[in-house]
Design a protein around this nucleic acid. Structure first.
Lengths: 150, 150
DNA sequence: TATTGTTATACTCTATAACTATA
DNA sequence: TATAGTTATAGAGTATAACAATA
């Protein structure tokens, strides 16, 4: 089926109706996912950035510099976000034994509890697949893999 | 297949591996989509909020109040965003003949050009389906419809 | 000299509350 | 009285530039 061009197109070089609909659906899913995440964060008196940083630190402690890379922002911003989380006892700074310039941020026990509660309060992001059969989930998985690969 | 519970689960009430993988894939797509959008906006010296507002106004002029509802923020914020876009000649405020309290925001010709350029510079958001066959796109469409419905 | 984290600065987004002009 | 838009204010995220401590 016309596989020389990346995406099927009609005459005027516009995506075909099927592709257009899928793009729109993805946009809706993205919006729902994000809204869900922000609301869950707000319910815990966290901003989106704070929730993302805390979730990252629950996987593993990270130096400030690495945090900035993961969050795709400048290192100077991470200082403030960690400051606010540290003031609430959710995160702490630890020295790095091998390099005294480095400060490693880590989630505290309270921080991990908060992150777990946050994760559990994500409705759409956690249960987006409630309406799908196993076959549909397999198809969705394969399509998403294809998107991220392509 | 096991359709009494919303989502298949293993013993400890945790989602099964397939569901977990799909959730993770959706998260990655959401992240890519958003990053793509923000970068495209930045390339045009727009913030994300400005780009979203401008894109909305390219579909139809809207009263300030309605804009706030669409952007899911307070009306007072819209004032500033429209101010900055208006200062750059991308948006204008028009009076509403039927209600003198209302100001209708509308994209200018320059604003529409900017929005079109913005739309065209979205790589992943515009061409997320490059790697998928028609059959995969149909499967993806159906799965996404099911997600948003369920 | 280069790197890590921080500070200082400026801008934008955000919500809240008070204000104005209409209705 | 109620509504549309604005202003004032304060907190948070963001990028840039300059800085101290360390490598």
């Amino acid at each position: 089926m016309a596989s020389t061009t990346p995406t099927p197109r009609t005459t005027a070089n516009r995506p075909d109706p099927l592709t257009l609909e899928v793009v729109e659906l993805i946009g809706e899913v993205v919006a729902r996912f994000h809204q869900d995440y922000e609301e869950a964060a707000a319910e815990h008196a966290l901003t989106g950035a704070q929730a993302r940083l805390l979730s990252l630190l629950c996987l593993e402690p990270l130096p400030m510099r690495r945090l900035a890379q993961r969050l795709k922002c400048e290192p100077s911003n991470v200082t403030g976000i960690v400051d606010r989380l540290e003031a609430r006892g959710l995160v702490e700074r630890r020295p790095d034994p091998t390099d005294r310039r480095v400060k490693v941020a880590a989630a505290t026990a309270d921080g991990r509890r908060m992150a777990r509660s946050l994760r559990e309060s994500l409705r759409f992001a956690r249960e987006p697949l409630a309406g799908l059969s196993e076959g549909e989930r397999v198809a969705l998985r394969d399509a998403l893999r294809g998107m991220l690969a392509g």
